[in-house]
Design a protein around this nucleic acid. Structure first.
Lengths: 187, 187
DNA sequence: CCAAATATATACAGACTTGTATGTATCGAA
DNA sequence: TTCGATACATACAAGTCTGTATATATTTGG
């Protein structure tokens, strides 16, 4: 398969970047873990930054896919889905491979707003908030974007409180706040 | 002065770590910027990690001091102070030297929960939330810790939305959500 | 004023970084 | 089965990293 190695390389890189960080993970480590030669990497990507970007794109695609399916599988009405968000988040937090948000972490290491890597992180957040906006609109919110923005604040806040502060119940607490905000927004 | 160089070293390190990141900032860069010899650093700190810890301690002290004073200078009643939090946050976001939260960023690079650096970040969050709890109690909340937890979620969420997603009005939006939560918690 | 503590500059060790160069082997399709 | 693309291993360049060693200079306290 032509691009099978490329895929495997991106997967391995994503895994290591998420666990160990971006600067802390060297190219050689990724290659050893993936069992791929260095020239194969530089044949597919022109630099480490390009590999990071590919890993972030994959993470974005996978995460949003998983997230949307999980939310929609867990609750049927649009309103219930606005709250199910936080049950799904909590499930993520409880999983063994939780290492914080890939994008929050990446934008911490690549802090300049004009860095393409930082831009990819902003784009991801935009897409997630867009999804929340769709849910809010389906639930009949008068100002779907405003509600989505509020829920987004709670989501990101929960991720930080789980990862940085180690609060295991961060998403449950966020759900409590979301219930109040959703109730207020839907009347 | 005995510890004047140490202080200057920590200040310079904090500045560079905040702007450029922790792994991305080399010891030599800090020394050059501070105008200090390498042996002076290793006389005061036994490793780079120790210097990072010292920088985080200084940042925690300075930030909480500034934050509490700013909140209390901006509003007089406990209830108003619970909302003034977000005005102060917005002021921070608008400042030129905003590079995200030092502690969120550090815990992104030092992701293992048992890492002392990660621990220092968790401690900082705990102290900030403690302050919010005091404000909530003074405002007469029936469950001050619960309200503090909710406001903390909005605070951290706002920081992420400002830094990672580039939302310049993140704190203003968070204030809107906080108004609803505070109103609900104080009756 | 002298002695002890502290800071200095320079050099270095040893490991690590990204990216390139080179020659060999493997694999898929014509 | 032969040709071309792709992947391989190895070596290397040129620079970075943290931390140590050494010898000289400066500052500070008694």
């Amino acid at each position: 398969m032509a691009s099978s190695r490329r895929e495997h390389l991106v997967d391995t890189a994503l895994e290591l970047f998420s666990r160990e960080g971006y600067h802390a993970t060297g190219i050689d480590r990724i290659l050893a873990e993936a069992g791929v030669a260095k020239m194969t990497l530089y044949n597919h990507f022109k630099s480490k930054d390009e590999l990071i970007l590919a890993a972030l794109r994959r993470r974005d695609e996978r995460f949003r896919n998983w997230f949307m399916r999980a939310v929609e599988g867990r609750a049927k009405t649009p309103r219930a889905r606005l709250l199910a968000i936080f049950d799904v988040l909590q499930e993520w937090f409880d999983s063994k491979e939780f290492n914080g948000c890939t994008f929050i972490n990446a934008s911490a290491e690549f802090g300049r707003p004009d860095d393409p890597i930082h831009g990819a992180c902003a784009e991801h957040q935009q897409l997630v908030q867009g999804y929340l906006g769709e849910l809010a609109a389906a639930a009949g919110a008068t100002d779907p974007e405003a509600l989505a923005g509020q829920l987004m604040l709670l989501m990101e806040g929960a991720i930080v409180m789980r990862h940085t502060a180690g609060r295991r119940d961060a998403a449950i607490k966020a759900r409590g706040a979301a219930e109040i905000l959703v109730e207020r927004a839907l009347d």
